[in-house]
Design a protein around this nucleic acid. Structure first.
Length: 377
RNA sequence: GGAUGGGUAUGCCUAGCGGCGAGGGCAGCGGACUGUAAAUCCGUCACAAAGAAACAGCGCAGGUUCGAGUCCUGCCCCAUCCA
């Protein structure tokens, strides 16, 4: 259930009630693709750094360790000891990211496992069954994410197929939720809008899927090569055609600036690998811009990553020490960096919600962006 | 003193066995990463350089050869073993 609390322009402050608790939006979901936040971050850590929703992946958990196994173990929540909401991506993005290892057909997608090469078939029904076995809070529809550089006719055909797949997803999810041995009988299903950078295709698709009454609506296929301007333009064109009484989710996005721009254009949910991956690579987010702790200039820097930051890394350790850990390839180095970055993202979302509550999001956004662009770190 | 194996570029390790203006790795330095095939990947890492020509370089000095890290001689170092 989606409850709009406050609105400033198109930016929305809302909450989404789920069986695993209420999600305050706008929210950034912390990505743990294989039911693990890369960088040795535990679910206990997630609680400490203010994570509301964890995100895992259908394809990756299907190939290892297997959704049937996870079902036997009581579902994802019990498996990874996390009782707050979990969103599972459908495997649709792997149709894009594993492009060299798959073949798309009307019935679904034939993958060669990136682990051992064995043949895997995943269509809408399979994706729903896997996600039902995982028993996530929110399942994503199985879609195709076309390249931002795809030809118009390819995108038209692809989006039509994604719509047909959505019908199959919805039907299968309804069936699964009614089954006796389904762990989460209230599993929500979000649709995904596609259309590359063609506004008219996006709008047409948005209207189509809006009529189908899903629990939420995502915009996929952005931040895959197009410019920021194109992405923001697509959001402006598309979001108004999605249901106002359902959450909007911008998939895979993005930088702190992308998120601020997304919120301004009405997006409620975000996720991105940036804070985790960049953290592992020593790139840290601060209110004064990004820093690369591998750089020699931090060798003798005794300041925390960010002055005044309340994360587990900044409360206790210096840049010089964390840089040392990174250079020594000690796991703790990556872990502290990932914790800092996720804390930065989670805290920024809290600030965004506070600003929306207070009715000064526009001012907050402006000062946040100016700070990050100053690059004084 | 004897035997054997070695000394390869900016710091370390290493490929090379007659066409080498010398390949690779580590370390260093820098960059990239957007629903994670990513603790990954890319660049740079002797001099010079727009390009061309010429010149330097494999412990040192000679030699053989059209041509020498590569073969030969002597020397200097290092390692291991034997006295």
């Amino acid at each position: 259930m989606y409850k709009l609390l406050k609105q400033e322009g198109r930016a929305k402050r809302a909450e989404v009630v789920t069986v695993h608790g209420t999600i305050q939006t706008p929210v950034f979901m912390n990505v743990g693709t294989v039911a693990a936040i890369k960088g040795a971050v535990s679910t206990a850590d997630l609680e400490e750094i203010g994570t509301q929703v964890e995100l895992s992946n259908t394809y990756h958990l299907h190939v290892r360790t297997g959704d049937e196994t996870i079902k036997k173990l009581g579902g994802l929540h019990k498996f990874m000891s996390w009782n707050k909401p979990i969103l599972t991506d459908s495997g649709g993005f792997q149709v894009f990211s594993l492009a060299g290892l798959r073949k798309i057909k009307e019935e679904g997608v034939y993958f060669n496992s990136h682990i051992d090469g064995r043949k895997i078939f995943m269509g809408p029904e399979e994706s729903m069954r896997i996600q039902s076995n995982l028993a996530s809070t929110i399942a994503m529809a199985f879609d195709e994410c076309p390249s931002s550089k795809a030809e118009r006719q390819y995108v038209v055909n692809s989006v039509e197929r994604t719509t047909r797949w959505l019908e199959r997803c919805k039907k299968e999810m309804n069936r699964l939720n009614a089954l006796e041995d389904t762990i989460n009988k209230n599993q929500m299903l979000f649709a995904i809008n596609q259309g590359a950078i063609f506004s008219d295709i996006r709008i047409e698709h948005a209207k189509r899927i809006s009529e189908m009454d899903l629990d939420g609506y995502a915009i996929g296929g952005l931040a895959v090569g197009e410019t920021h301007e194109e992405m923001y333009h697509i959001l402006e064109e598309t979001v108004p055609h999605l249901p106002k009484d359902k959450p909007t989710y911008l998939m895979g996005v993005g930088t702190p600036a992308n998120i601020l721009e997304g919120v301004e254009r009405g997006v409620d949910f975000f996720d991105c690998v940036y804070p985790t991956r960049n953290g592992r690579h020593g790139h840290l987010y601060t209110n004064h811009g990004k820093i690369n702790l591998f750089n020699a200039k931090y060798e003798l820097d005794q300041k925390p990553i960010e002055e005044g930051c309340g994360c587990p890394a900044c409360r206790r350790y210096s840049r010089a020490y964390i840089r040392h850990l990174l250079k020594a390839k000690e796991m703790l180095g990556m872990r502290l960096c990932v914790l800092h970055n996720l804390y930065f993202y989670n805290t920024m979302m809290t600030e965004i919600r506070d600003a929306l509550d207070a009715g000064n999001f526009a001012a907050y956004k402006k000062s946040k962006l100016e700070g990050m662009e100053s690059g004084e770190s």
